[in-house]
Computed example of a mutant assay.
Amino acid sequence: MAVSIHDDPPILVCADLQTEYLTEGRRHVIADPDAIRSRCLELMTLWRDNLWPIIHLKRIAQAAWFNPASNLTDWISDLKPRPGELAFEHPLPSAYSSSRFAEYMANMRNVRCVLSGFSLDETILSTVVDGFHRSHRYQVVGDAVACRHPGIGDAASYKLAVVNVIGNFAGIVGSADLIEANAVISV
């Protein structure tokens, strides 16, 4: 039996929505940023309109600590956390490298998380695998995630390969399915 999105709304986890991923010339610049930003904003708007919980993850790697004046770790302006939304900084790829996040998730019972955002091949992949080993349930929004340009090969094939690996540890869902599930119930 399918559980309604309204009966047990999942937590929207927004991964690394930072300017570094949009800055040309950076190692982590992502392919197709406008489409992914748009879908992430659409999902955030759905969650905010329904007053469902949102968590923001922010990668603070060691390189940023040596240049505190850098704005590369700043939130993308239209995707930054609002008051009342949780935000966790994590130094390693997995969000569980944040002791606050790990403790928060350990204290949640029967929680479902829907992941969207950037760094698919780092933060999202490692968080899903860590969560899987802690019996946490994740779904990844396949069309609302992005990863950096690979060193070689086609970016779309690389993303598909990473999503396929993640599918071994989490469900893969489309943003249209989540939005449609909400629209059917709201009518």
Rank of each mutant, 00 (worst) to 15 (best):
D49M: 00
Q139A: 14
D121A: 00
K159D: 05
L86K: 09
V162K: 02
L72I: 12
A156W: 11
Y138P: 00
Q18P: 03
I60S: 04
E20N: 08
P83A: 11
D32K: 08
R27Y: 15
W52F: 14
Y96H: 08
R26T: 15
A161E: 11
E85K: 02
V162S: 06
M108W: 04
V165C: 10
S116I: 13
A106M: 07
A161D: 12
K159N: 07
L12D: 08
V173A: 05
N168E: 13
I30A: 01
Q18I: 03
A102T: 11
A170T: 12
V173I: 15
A64R: 01
A61N: 09
S70I: 06
C147H: 06
S126P: 04
P9C: 02
C147I: 13
E103R: 05
L72G: 04
I60P: 00
S77M: 02
V114M: 00
R137H: 13
I55N: 00
E20A: 07
V184G: 06
R148F: 08
R26V: 14
V13G: 01
D7H: 04
S186A: 15
L115K: 01
V145W: 01
D78I: 11
L79V: 15
I11P: 01
W52P: 01
S116T: 15
N50E: 14
A61D: 13
R148S: 08
T45P: 05
M1G: 14
V184R: 09
E89T: 14
R148M: 07
E20W: 07
P9T: 12
A95R: 00
Q62M: 02
Y158N: 09
N110T: 10
A106T: 13
N71P: 02
N71D: 11
S116F: 03
Y96V: 05
V129L: 04
P91V: 11
L160F: 11
E85H: 12
S116W: 00
Y138N: 02
S175Y: 07
D121S: 03
H6Q: 08
I60D: 07
K58W: 04
L160G: 13
M105T: 14
R82N: 09
V13N: 01
V111W: 00
L51W: 05
A181Y: 01
D8W: 02
T23I: 04
R137T: 15
P68A: 07
L22P: 10
S38C: 07
V163G: 01
H136A: 06
D34Q: 13
A176F: 12
A87T: 15
T19G: 03
A15G: 03
E42F: 03
G84T: 14
I172M: 11
A2R: 05
G142M: 06
E42H: 10
P53H: 10
R112C: 02
A170C: 05
I172T: 15
L17T: 15
H6N: 06
S4E: 07
A102D: 12
S126T: 14
A61I: 09
R26Y: 14
R109G: 07
A106K: 05
I185M: 09
L12E: 09
